[in-house]
Design a binder for these strands. Structure first.
Lengths: 225, 225, 225, 225
DNA sequence: AATGAATGAGGTTTCATTCAT
DNA sequence: AATGAATGAAACCTCATTCAT
């Protein structure tokens, strides 16, 4: 399964019916929101950056909040797209003998996606706590859709004894924390540090693997815990 | 080493010289900032919530930003306090035979601290990306002080073969991601979900352990990876 | 003289050359202006209500003010139409022996007209004070044309001793106040009160009669109300 | 009963606790609202006219609408004050043998009041149709309080046979229409015409008298008007 | 130390009007 | 004739900050 099956990398793919000015507005808004935060960004600033009149923003987006939502909703949809493939188990059996291969493919793919949409990703994680609508959207999309699919997948490998017996929620939380933690450290908190990207990615994935792998897969009856 | 050695639970401990009004202002600001974000909170709102006049805030804190920093700086200090004990290795040897015991104590303790200061913790992680001074402070405190100490500790156990050979930076990043990920999921994103706190804490710690433990501690030469 | 001779009930009678869209615009504008006032109504709102594009309004009416005038001017013309009949005295002698009959016919007829055009009537009385052009129009039409004619009529009956000797201006003012006062109370201020329309109309007319009739016309037993 | 008993002529009498700036704001707002209408007056215009910063307006009045209400509510209170005297019948018997004397005193007094507060009076009659709160206030004050009192008074004279047997509501409506009609003609529509104020006032009052007086009270030679 | 009125810059949003299609 | 995207001035309102009391 190539990464290309999963990905949807640029924001305006599949976004039809946007005028040129609308695109410029969205781009400018993404840039500003991600740099200064939603509340600290003024619409006049966005207008200037987009090269349009301030009124133009409000012709397309009734309110500033509307503008925010108009970029987050499609992004969420694209993020979960790969999880919504039907008959995921067939894909799994067919393509990935060991869960590690699958997990690696999945993680690399979604990391790739987020890297390509970093500013938007940053906006989402920054603003979710302050906007109940966003939170609701997030819960519905990630919390439900993705949860269902990923549970299914994990169950597939748990049945094979390749993944430890944890509640899906916990597994997802732990894996997601590690992944998001990597992205946030790498691109948001310490972007200008000296990173060996390939190695860090590998370490991150390894860490998840180890954490999720049953100890006694390796040696029956070994550890104490 | 009891948890009590580490902790500093309420905000005003060790904060001398604060008038009653100042405390009310800080408390009100913490509440508002954490609920709505720094930029979206007005000083007049804080004044009203604190029961003081608008001018009073500016008598004590020259600007709104000052007010923000005045709560974050001490919080950071308190967070890192347990890491700044001298001769940490002595403590380690003396008290914790296995790294797991140490890690568990450390994690539980810091989680306890953050839980007791959740709103402030939330403010810090929300605002760091938007305030260079904060970022600088964070890097200096966490990034340096804590890093040094924790590196030292990890090296201690790496030398014993109890922890895998990863760069300290990576280890800290992975452990921190998992811990913060737990707290953020638990208290910020899904606070009203149905959590089995004790079990989740245990899973979180286990996850870190597994992820950091050398595989061949369990069985030499076993897996392929 | 039947009421039908006087009346011009619907707005678009005699309005040739208006496209379908223009009519919709006018109708929408009348509704909005009368509900919210001219200044508080936006052209975009009118466009939406009329089901046309915003630009279409300005194709037909150069400015918003133009749109206002385009509805008020014809309305004024229609209101005064019955007063502009030539040789009114002939009509009077021919048809109305007693002034009361004439006055009643006149009042009933004009009330009927205004009732049929209430929203527009409301707009006119609301906006006149704020638009000099309107005020000028009003003065010229009502203040001059109507004044002349009505003066003539009143003089006709004053000569017969049926109406007290007051300046025409005062008579008109008093009669008009009473009539407009009725309409405004009935339809604008207390439209949802419980009105006995026929009785109130009768009382209104009686009030004008009494107020304008010389006292000593009423010798005992002449009539009882 | 001298007119002075009734009157409350300037707006700020009895208005305590207003800062100098607040008074200037109110005065400027009254002037502008009455000249251009509420909706067509901008707050910046009021601020400039009042010589204060625009923000100052909003420190004292949360919204523009608030500012409007803050001037209308006291005005209504003052207008109805004379009607709320207890035991009005005692006053009537004691002081006014004939209803004409009473009516004249009352009318002259209230006209005097309105003349002294013309701009505010104009604002009220202009804005009532567009603001439900105002309408409600108006109904409660004028429609109830005044109505009750005036009904009582009229009944007093109706019992003596001096006023015709009409429902109080109708009487008040007719009298009010005539009075307001005079004021509106005189001061709002044709303020610059050539008025003989004393004569017109007299005619207005006479008109009400005649309209309300039973016809058969007037036997020949009874009085000459 | 504390107040809260006052400020004016700037925030979001609305609006009448224009113009290319 | 009709559209509706685009404009930019101006509307209402908020805000951090100052200062006389």
């Amino acid at each position: 399964m190539s990464n290309q099956d999963f990905m949807m990398d640029t924001f305006f793919e599949d976004e039809e019916g946007l005028t040129e000015k609308q695109k410029k507005i969205i781009l400018a808004a993404i840039e500003s929101f991600s740099e200064k935060g939603y509340a600290a960004t003024s619409t006049s600033e966005i207008a200037k950056k987009a090269g349009v009149a301030e009124g133009t923003i409000f012709r397309h987006y009734k309110t500033k909040k509307d503008l925010l939502l108009s970029m987050i909703t499609p992004m969420m949809g694209k993020f979960i797209a790969p999880f919504v493939i039907k008959d995921i188990n067939k894909v799994l059996d067919h393509r990935f003998e060991h869960y590690e291969d699958f997990l690696r493919a999945m993680i690399e793919n979604r990391i790739e996606f987020l890297k390509k949409n970093l500013p938007l990703f940053k906006i989402i994680i920054q603003e979710i706590p302050f906007h109940p609508e966003l939170k609701a959207q997030f819960k519905e999309h990630i919390g439900n859709k993705v949860f269902e699919r990923v549970s299914e997948m994990f169950k597939h490998y748990q049945d094979k004894g390749q993944i430890i017996e944890l509640p899906s929620k916990s597994i997802i939380r732990l894996a997601a924390s590690t992944i998001f933690g990597f992205l946030i450290s790498r691109y948001i908190i310490f972007p200008e540090a000296d990173w060996d990207d390939e190695a860090e990615m590998e370490r991150t994935i390894q860490f998840i693997m180890h954490g999720l792998t049953p100890k006694d897969e390796f040696i029956p009856g070994s550890e104490t815990e």
